[in-house]
């Protein structure tokens, strides 16, 4: 297993901040269109973190024009330029699937009081 650990350690990115469920994040994505490369930002709440070494992923949910959009990002993908934590959320579970059936004001995540 050590050889596999070593390969995975090489693949991992150490510059990704530590994420928690409920956090509001901005994911800066590298989008390649033909030859041009540009950065697209996907902002939303982290609703799930799947742990694993190089295989770990996180899911970000946002409401776009009234429609819920979820994207699963491999944590260590080179397509991610950087991840910015905008705010920490106050949640009581690690998988926030309940947000899917909530609409409007109810579908917000409480913001953690960081000064406490």
């Amino acid at each position: 297993m050590n050889a596999i650990r070593k390969i995975e350690a090489e693949q991992m990115r150490m510059d990704i901040p530590r994420l928690h469920s409920g956090d509001t994040v901005k994911v800066h994505l590298r989008i390649i269109e033909g030859e041009k490369e540009r950065i697209q930002v996907f902002q939303g709440n982290v609703i799930r973190i799947r742990k694993g070494t190089a295989n770990s992923t996180f899911t970000v949910r946002k409401i776009s024009d009234g429609v819920g959009v979820e994207r699963i990002f491999p944590m260590h993908s080179p397509f991610i330029e950087r991840v910015e934590v905008v705010g920490e959320g106050k949640v009581r579970r690690s998988r926030l699937y309940y947000l899917r059936r909530l609409r409007g004001k109810a579908a917000r995540v409480k913001i953690k009081n960081t000064w406490e």
Partner: peptide, 13 residues
């Protein structure tokens, strides 16, 4: 030894 995934030069897993 087992399986894992690596990211290729174009960024795909």
């Amino acid at each position: 030894l087992g399986m894992t995934r690596v990211f290729g030069s174009d960024g795909t897993a």
